[in-house]
Design a protein around this nucleic acid. Structure first.
Lengths: 356, 356
DNA sequence: GTGAAAGCGCTAACAG
DNA sequence: CTGTTAGCGCTTTCAC
């Protein structure tokens, strides 16, 4: 360990000596404890600033039993989604909120089942992290019950499939999908198909439910042939759309923007015009939606905000010491561009940066 | 702090008692110290397994002066790139390697200048992380000298602009670009333009250099009007391509795939056919390149591998305790699809998953 | 090969 | 309001 730590380390003790007080007082100043006489506080703070003292996180963790770290856990199954900007954006929100709340963000991506096992055990047993933000999981994943069983404060991104006693932030998937499909109906589309997400996830199920609700609301019978399950990816959307083409839909509601892009590509390959022959609506409003060809009408969800909210819920839990479960559902918004056929003349919107 | 830590915590001490040895011995077993009699080791290990003991990371850090954490630092300037899959993929590689080397990965995204200041100070001064992986920085960023000045072991992703005494992993940007442009020349293109990345980054400069090298190699004079600087984004590529159109290029080499996509869109809007009127080659081989319309010829760089290599270089530094600087440059590979006009009949390759 | 003991740097009662 | 004191759980000489 002869790692050139030349300068003798700066500790509470040293600062205390320089300021002519005890360690406790310095500690109190560092931790913004109210009971320190202003004059003393000032004197100590001056020394801290001048010396550039920072408390040692390990010592601090050991003494007060918390790490100051929030863990973001993303299970193996969803790694594919890493090819679309959803996760990056979510992480941006989470990171931002961690910074403002003074937590360190650690990332736990599981790449193999084995890793998942081992890391999970570590995460739950040790004082590695103070709390966990967990991205949505498919049905029956053992992670959720494990977390609930443990004492680990957790907030999920997306409602868990089995309505568990756990906090989560979600978006109004049902209503968002409903609104999209209702919009297609209003535009006179008759045979509206949908490409769903995986039906072992709430996101997949909820958006399909919204689709059904909209049809039912217009007294239109659901044609099961017009519902194809896919996987949220571009390639999946492509395949699904090819399959749907045989049933001659005049509109497709894709439960994610990448799938909508895949559908767009399939239709182009098949020589169909969008929106003239077939209208398309996606879900997410990812950056590329605005510059797609044609620009994609889609249901915007506030991804960044979701991440921020998740962190805030978690830090609330951590700081209150209580453990009530809370839920938050963010609204969605239908962003009308050209692929739905409502706006045939509008110019391409290249101002991709005006997003939450 | 009455945080329902009901079960009295499992410590070295307890394990020692159960196994009938001293704490030191348990510690030795946990740390795979050689000098423990096999019989004893086995007995202790059994207790560890049965009780599910895991050492407390904070206590461990405090005692041995290392956190077991690697910090991934991504400066503010590059957050825009978060909309393309480059960073996610890099993070995947880094995370994977961290897992296998038993390090925790912490993420430091700077969102404001202020945050950058404060977090950097924290990062460098404290024992927060054992080492840092730093994504590339534009010229003149103070972070690099700061890092070098500190004792913090660091590996950069991408060669720093000022050739510093620092370790990094890079890709052969010059040769990759050269190969792409040479390929266009071989196909008979005469007026080859390029959309560069920001010219205050090595990536931007190197790829432009490759472009120049290829032309020079064919004794073609460089027409500065055919070189437009952009920012690696789709929107930037779109603007740059519009600008280039006035100078009637018959091919465009874009220094990133998103910019190539933007160029594609600009050409489509302008009624030019790709590759018939204008050929396009990108750089990255991001997942969407294969499914673009037309499929994008591009220079593939092994992003995942870069991340893994960076972690391995860093853990080597950490474990050897030495601090030699090392450099690694990964090769690139030209992936020929249809946008360059070499392959007019090939079918769309939707097998996007076969990538490193 | 194993145990005893001295910290690592900080927090948090408890006195005063 | 401030100082004293006792740990937090582990690693690591140093003896035996």
């Amino acid at each position: 360990m002869q790692r050139g730590r030349n300068v003798s380390k700066l500790t509470l003790q040293k600062v205390a000596e320089l300021a002519g007080v005890s360690r406790s007082t310095v500690s109190r100043v560092v931790n913004h404890h109210p009971s320190v006489k202003p004059a003393v506080r000032q004197r100590v703070q001056k020394v801290i600033d001048e010396t550039g003292y920072h408390p040692d996180p390990a010592a601090r963790s050991l003494a007060n039993q918390r790490s100051g770290i929030i863990g973001l856990v993303i299970p193996r199954v969803f790694q594919s989604l890493f090819t679309d900007p959803y996760y990056p954006r979510l992480m941006q929100g989470i990171s931002q909120a961690c910074n403002t709340h003074n937590y360190i963000l650690s990332l736990f991506l599981f790449h193999t089942e084995d890793e998942e096992q081992k890391l999970t055990a570590k995460l739950l047993r040790q004082q590695l992290v103070d709390g966990i933000i967990l991205s949505a999981l498919p049905a029956g994943d053992p992670l959720v019950p494990q977390l609930i069983g443990s004492q680990m404060p957790t907030v999920m991104i997306g409602r868990p499939l089995e309505a568990q006693a756990i906090s989560y932030v979600d978006v109004s998937n049902v209503d968002g999908a409903d609104e999209a499909v209702a919009h297609l109906l209003k535009l006179g589309r008759q045979r509206i198909a949908t490409i769903t997400g995986p039906l072992n996830t709430t996101v997949g199920l909820d958006r399909r439910q919204g689709y059904r609700n909209a049809l039912r609301n217009d007294d239109i019978a659901v044609d099961e042939a017009l519902i194809v399950e896919s996987d949220f990816t571009e390639a999946g959307g492509y395949q699904a759309a090819r399959q749907l083409l045989e049933h001659r839909p005049d509109a497709i509601f894709a439960a994610s923007d990448p799938m909508a892009m895949g559908a767009l590509r399939a239709l182009r390959d098949a020589g169909r015009r969008v929106p003239d022959d077939i209208a398309i609506i996606g879900f997410d409003d990812l950056p590329f939606a605005a510059t797609a060809h044609p620009p994609l009408t889609t249901v915007r969800q506030p991804i960044l905000r979701q991440g921020i909210t998740a962190v805030e819920m978690l830090t609330d839990l951590l700081e209150s010491g209580l453990r009530p479960t809370r839920q938050f559902t963010a609204p969605t918004e239908l962003v009308i561009r050209q692929s739905c056929g409502a706006n045939p003349k509008t110019h391409v919107d290249i101002d991709v940066n005006v997003r939450l």
